[in-house]
């Protein structure tokens, strides 16, 4: 262990193959600057920071917490003439904690699809462990999401800063963030319970799981608990969940539910198919008047 007593932990944010979405999502944190005041920001892709990109590529920067954004390729992506893979290896060895911020850094994400054999997440390739896993598993915290929610990252950073242990699941995701499904807390839950599908996009009424491709019931994430932009979520504005925190994101056909003879091909997380179908058959047998009407009647 490095001696970190009496000084702030040094934070290094390093980008690989990315869209910068996690960077910008993080900038939306309402308490960004009081949060950052707990740390020494040694390098960041957008914010003023202690060291330049040139110093980063010269491998000169000290770091305690390494935040990774973007997916990885062994060869062919350089910054200032230095392979990003070697930069990451350098800093990953020195860091006390590695946070893979976003689905790309964690599992490979969208950019993995350009070259699935060569591009992957840092320690995972989809759900499979990469060679790096053994080296870094001890200090790895996975924060999948396309993008990450700013509060997911601040939770992890503040836990580290206060010397607390972050409880993780088998893919190194914090259980307090990924123990839920995106479905929990969705304002359309009543429609899911009663198996009322959304007739079309653009309505408050109906559940998006049956037709519109919503993956909320089997996607891990706190999107409907820790709200986006502190105000809402995809499903709350009628957009399906696309499963962006999952190792296989993105699947094909994101706006339609894959069904076999009308039966959803993927069951809600951990629900046996027989149990789900039994419940569906029963619940669908009732016509609930309230659910056949507009939720809010303005004319009455």
């Amino acid at each position: 262990m490095k001696d970190t007593v009496g000084r702030k932990l040094r934070l290094l944010w390093l980008q690989s193959i990315t869209c910068n979405g996690n960077t910008h999502s993080f900038l939306n944190h309402p308490e960004l600057f009081s949060l950052l005041s707990h740390f020494d920001l040694v390098h960041h892709p957008v914010l003023e920071s202690g060291y330049s990109m040139e110093e980063l590529t010269d491998k000169k920067i000290p770091c305690d917490i390494l935040i990774l954004e973007g997916s990885f390729i062994e060869e062919g992506f350089t910054k200032n003439g230095v392979e990003v893979s070697s930069l990451v290896a350098h800093y990953a060895q020195r860091a006390e904690y590695i946070v893979s911020a976003g689905t790309c850094a964690t599992f490979g994400g969208i950019f993995k699809q350009k070259d699935p054999e060569k591009i992957s997440g840092f320690c995972f390739d989809g759900e499979e462990r990469t060679e790096r896993y053994e080296h870094y598993a001890q200090k790895l915290i996975s924060l999948p999401g396309c993008p990450i929610h700013p509060r997911w990252l601040s939770y992890v950073l503040l836990m580290i800063a206060s010397g607390k242990k972050v409880a993780l699941d088998s893919l190194h995701r914090p259980v307090e963030l990924y123990g839920y499904t995106v479905h929990s807390g969705c304002t359309r839950n009543e429609y899911f319970e009663w198996k009322i599908d959304a007739k079309q996009f653009g309505l408050k009424e109906g559940c998006l799981f049956y037709e519109q491709g919503c993956q909320g019931p089997y996607t891990r994430g706190s999107c409907n608990k820790i709200l986006w932009n502190d105000i809402t979520s995809k499903t709350r504005v009628g957009t399906p969940c696309f499963g962006c925190t999952e190792p296989e994101f993105p699947k094909v056909g994101l706006f339609s539910t894959r069904t076999n003879m009308g039966i959803p091909a993927t069951m809600p997380l951990g629900i046996p198919r027989r149990a789900y179908l039994t419940l569906t058959g029963v619940v669908k047998s009732f016509k609930i008047k309230r659910f056949s009407e507009r939720l809010l009647e303005y004319d009455k």
Binding site: H24, N28, P147, F201, K234, V237, G238, T239, L254
Partner: peptide, 16 residues
């Protein structure tokens, strides 16, 4: 629904 990376505009209008 969120920024960044919303997909709320769909053919024919918006989801909200």
């Amino acid at each position: 629904g969120q920024w960044p990376h919303s997909s709320y505009a769909v053919p024919g209008g918006v989801t909200c």
